[in-house]
């Protein structure tokens, strides 16, 4: 299948999920409200800390809000897209229902990682973008088109990196009997994304910025907007995204050999 067909299929899935959302409007409003509350809570928690210190590792109040805005965008994707698909993926492995997908003339990983989504994070996404714009105004920073483009590229790269890490962990479902909280592992690491990478020191810094560069996901795009980007770190974020993506595919192809279905 050509790339164009995949693009078309991707948006077809979004359309189907949108129709589902319109069917359960009450559900959508309720969960959107909860996601808004948690977003406000996140900002509030950090405002308490910033009230004490004025800055965190050299990031002042509005620079921190910009970082938290970037985190909020990532969080919107985490719960509305990644979590929905990964839950579906592991559920199909544990129930032995994966053969439905494996026999389709479409890439299995594409189907597994893009079919589902919810729209509960839309307001979270809007809040994240609004906070970034507000922080930029307060910081008196006017970003160039190149800066914004680079921000979007690095944010997408960070999202892909996170998704690939999550996919690798979810693929472990082929190897374990049953692990209901397997999809809570990556969200459990979200706090790392909320703080500047410079907060981590020593061995933790090496682990979280080089080996498993989760600390770069929100920090690096935010640094680009703030005009304090580091070329080596940007390149490393892009390389590690590609490497993790490939690692995810290789691990999936290896693990699928272990799969047994229920004869559906």
């Amino acid at each position: 299948m050509s790339l164009g067909k995949y693009w078309h299929l991707f948006w077809k899935f979004r359309g189907i999920q949108f129709m589902k959302m319109t069917e359960y409007r009450g559900d959508f409003l309720f969960w959107s409200f909860i996601s808004i509350l948690w977003t406000i809570f996140n900002f509030f928690a950090f405002s308490l800390i910033l009230r004490v210190s004025g800055n965190i590792a050299g990031w002042n109040q509005y620079e921190m809000y910009l970082l938290l805005g970037t985190f909020t965008i990532i969080d919107a994707f985490t719960w509305s897209f990644f979590f929905e698909n990964m839950s579906n993926y592991t559920r199909q492995i544990f129930k032995g229902e994966l053969d439905y997908l494996l026999t389709k003339p479409v890439d299995a990983i594409f189907l597994l990682t893009t079919t589902e989504n919810s729209y509960n994070g839309v307001f979270r996404l809007i809040i994240g973008i609004s906070v970034i714009i507000y922080s930029l105004i307060k910081l008196n920073i006017s970003s160039s088109l190149t800066g914004v483009s680079l921000y979007i590229i690095l944010l997408s790269s960070g999202l892909l990196l996170m998704y690939s890490c999550w996919f690798i962990i979810a693929t472990l479902a082929f190897w374990v009997e049953k692990l209901d909280n397997i999809n809570q592992i990556i969200p459990g690491f979200r706090r790392i994304l909320q703080i500047p990478r410079s907060v981590f020191t020593g061995a933790f810094s090496t682990v979280l910025t080089v080996l498993i560069p989760l600390a770069l996901i929100a920090s690096v795009p935010s640094e680009v907007l703030l005009g304090r980007s580091n070329l080596i770190v940007i390149i490393w974020l892009l390389i590690s995204t590609v490497l993790t993506g490939f690692a995810g595919r290789i691990f999936f192809n290896f693990s699928i050999k272990k799969y047994s279905s229920v004869g559906s």
Partner: peptide
């Protein structure tokens, strides 16, 4: 959070 406070 301990790292955050260490930085603060």
């Amino acid at each position: 959070m301990i790292f955050v406070w260490k930085a603060i």
